[in-house]
Design a binder for these strands. Sequence first.
DNA 1: TTGTACGCGTTATCAA
DNA 2: TTGATAACGCGTACAA
Lengths: 335, 335
Amino acid sequence: MATNIHDVAKAAGVSVATVSKVLNGYTTVNANTKERVLQIVKELQFYPNSAARSLVGRRSMTIGIFLTTGLAHPFFTQILSGMEQALKSLGYDLIYLAQMSRAKEYSFVHHCHSRNVEGVVVFGFQQEEMSFDELIESGIPTLFIDLDIKKGRAGYISSDNHEAVERAIRYLIDLNHHRISFLSGNKDSYANRQRLEGYRSGLAEAEIPYREDYVSEGDFTREMGYQAMNKLLALAEPPTAVVCCSDMSAVGAMEAIQDAGLSVPEDISLIGFDDIEIASNIRPALTTTRQDMITIGRRSIELLDELIKDKELPPPEVIIPTELIIRKSTGPAKG
Amino acid sequence: MATNIHDVAKAAGVSVATVSKVLNGYTTVNANTKERVLQIVKELQFYPNSAARSLVGRRSMTIGIFLTTGLAHPFFTQILSGMEQALKSLGYDLIYLAQMSRAKEYSFVHHCHSRNVEGVVVFGFQQEEMSFDELIESGIPTLFIDLDIKKGRAGYISSDNHEAVERAIRYLIDLNHHRISFLSGNKDSYANRQRLEGYRSGLAEAEIPYREDYVSEGDFTREMGYQAMNKLLALAEPPTAVVCCSDMSAVGAMEAIQDAGLSVPEDISLIGFDDIEIASNIRPALTTTRQDMITIGRRSIELLDELIKDKELPPPEVIIPTELIIRKSTGPAKG
DNA sequence: TTGTACGCGTTATCAA
DNA sequence: TTGATAACGCGTACAA
């Protein structure tokens, strides 16, 4: 059906071995024959069968993608779009392995082997609940996004969450805020731990003592933001500024503030995280931290490629800078 | 490295042929041997190599995905999430073929053949600018989303855009509106053509004459909505209700209305399309049409699967119902 | 009911 | 510089 290497060999009047050599860039082939073969390849529109290729142990040019939380990642499309750029230029195709839920004994690692996947990118936001031991021990080159796993042939890439929150704190302190709260996301997540540390070191830098009651647990949702903010408002000495772990929780917090008859930023300054669409649409528009997910996506593939090509490469550990987008939800502290 | 069929055969004390038969559900194998083989397969965690499988002409269980507009489709994740369900239960993996932009002679069809892709799903919103002739003529089972191509082994699935707008018009007429405008999206797109027809037939049903100046050209953006609305407001007899082709353009229209010192829905009723997040967050919350993209995604794979399995199957043509979500941007006509 | 042996399309080895 | 041929892992006639 589709033309194969034999068709090309016949048409060019050479052996299949020669065609293969031309296609794989061997230098041990005459310039004229090479040109003739290339000509025929173009004429016949010959594309080598990748199944046969990977069967003989050559590269499959396939990268797998593993989503820990289905498609629910807020930046899924951005990450993918960044990945796309690198996939193109490096020549990989991306395969999404549908996990067989029925089979109790399903193994993602075996699925990868069965598909001759050369490397895997992993992301999602519930990573802490999963075990990646099998994947890491399998030795398949793996790149985690937003999860600090660095072991064997597995490395990671992430935004600079620490610096992001530290910078937000610094900005608020410049606005004369001293009572600054941190509205935390899922406790165990790597990103959140880093952000919490950024909060602490931001305060420490200005010699503001850390107050337990100014840090609220939670998740990344709007409802959580609403409730957490209400608790903060009930304190004897409520904060004058709040740094939230997501834009959605900041939106919830804003609603709580407004429902309490207060206003943003006059009474309380609010900073979000993510810069999703709603951040610029809400009134007042939300000051927030923007992550460069396009770059994270692109670099994740590039790093994975390096990991695949160099078996001895120590696993990468890459932190991407973020940006503070200043809008209308932050202002000078009262008084 | 990974265990292969020979390892299993040896361990089970049978030939590779027997193992293969067991794995492929042949009935011509003794119940006991079958059980023994299955046991070993589980113990050894044997997963057949898919490259070898597809090489011998058996199924590759791979479906390709083609995005006409990169990842920019507003419902990309929803469609994908619907697709995921069907992929799982049918056992397919999904491959995203990185299109080699550099190669002038790049052919998506050949890329598919080279990867032994069994079928392709196509979606995006700039379809009108592309040519799918090669894909359709290749005979690869293809399923288009939101594009009415039905030819050879290519069919399509789409929301019921016609009925959606007709229903919106009917709803506005029930609210006593007579001057109803349609804020059109990209003229050539299939979805938009259907919506325009729905607009016409909705008016015709109520015997309201079609007015050229009530239909504005445009795209799906917020800016366009703003400008188009301004033109409508400048008419001698402006509409009392506007049906928009997207929520974003409705948001733009709302801004134009408010900037003109008028209010929604008191002066003008507004209906969007899509029900994206902003629709429920904006004030007043937007009445809009919700598309069931999860179902569209799931069905697209199911239909493709049928197309793959039955070479004689006439190409499917499936329309999925939509839902009108009534919020606060619509109200009775003035006076 | 089971096993032998060939072929799928490609790459790599080795001889010419 | 080129070509014949043995792998790669699997499915399937066909023979036993």
